[in-house]
């Protein structure tokens, strides 16, 4: 635990009343809170390190895999067409499992059930590459959560989790990201926690990582036991984050400190 966070969090706790949701007119991507230098790295594809994984995902897209020896491209064709807008509406309802599924989960499902290949672990280079590649095809498109009643329960659960105090610091996601998004903690902008740029290249990690890895970081920061990768809790949080960010443009791959 870094001391600046503990210290600043104590200050945050002192000033918190009931956190209000951010009005739509005030919603802004985390990119707006970054320094000019970080924004410049993100803005230029030739300097954005996240593009290395987008490229890697692009070559995986064309590669035959699994017992089927089929590539993603053999079924889906050009990703620029077939995957455009897909990331903007994930997580979505998955009829096969009767539950909500996020983009990385959907890609892995296709890998297992359609390519007959082994499941890719969350945070593996391959799954991050494919997710970055598919996500990148929606760059510039507004986040558009599906209007699907089968997602209501999970979305409500995500909202509840977002507003539940947790960890030794007894803070909710909302305490920071709704009530104190203008603030800074130990030098970093708190931001409104919008999932616009995932997977992101994080300077801290020196590599690319998923939204779930980012959320785990925040949970560890308040000294809570983080949810497991791919868990229903994380997908629920992702659903709520997408709803909160509806209309903001996808930026994959974003760059964060």
């Amino acid at each position: 635990m870094r001391f600046p966070l503990a210290f600043a969090a104590a200050q945050l706790c002192a000033g918190i009343a009931v956190a209000q949701e951010i009005p739509p007119s005030e919603r802004r991507s985390g990119t707006n809170f970054m320094s000019a230098e970080t924004q410049a790295i993100q803005a230029d594809d030739g300097s954005n390190p996240g593009m290395l994984w987008v490229l890697q995902g692009g070559s995986l897209w064309d590669e035959p895999a699994g017992a089927s020896r089929r590539s993603c491209a053999s079924c889906h064709g050009e990703a620029a067409t077939s995957m455009r807008g897909v990331a903007a509406r994930y997580p979505a309802f998955d009829a096969a499992s009767g539950a909500s599924i996020d983009l990385a989960g959907k890609i892995d499902q296709c890998r297992m059930t359609r390519q007959h290949a082994t499941s890719l672990p969350r945070e593996s280079e391959e799954l991050l590459g494919l997710t970055a590649y598919v996500g990148h095809q929606s760059r510039g498109m507004p986040i558009a959560p599906p209007d699907d009643a089968r997602l209501d329960a999970a979305r409500a659960e995500g909202k509840r989790l977002f507003q539940t105090r947790m960890g030794q610091l007894d803070l909710s996601c909302s305490s920071c990201h709704d009530a104190n998004w203008r603030g800074r903690l130990g030098g970093s902008a708190v931001t409104q926690a919008h999932p616009t740029g995932y997977p992101i290249y994080r300077l801290e990690w020196q590599t690319i990582g998923s939204l779930q890895r980012r959320m785990r970081g925040c949970m560890v920061g308040v000294r809570a036991e983080p949810f497991a990768y791919g868990s229903a809790e994380f997908v629920a949080l992702e659903l709520y984050l997408a709803e909160r960010a509806a209309g903001l443009a996808i930026e994959t791959p974003a760059v964060r400190p």
Binding site: D45, G46, M51, L52, L55, Q56, G58, S59, L60
Partner: peptide, 8 residues
């Protein structure tokens, strides 16, 4: 696997 990115 492409792991390099050059712009020219």
């Amino acid at each position: 696997m492409s792991r390099t990115l050059v712009s020219v």
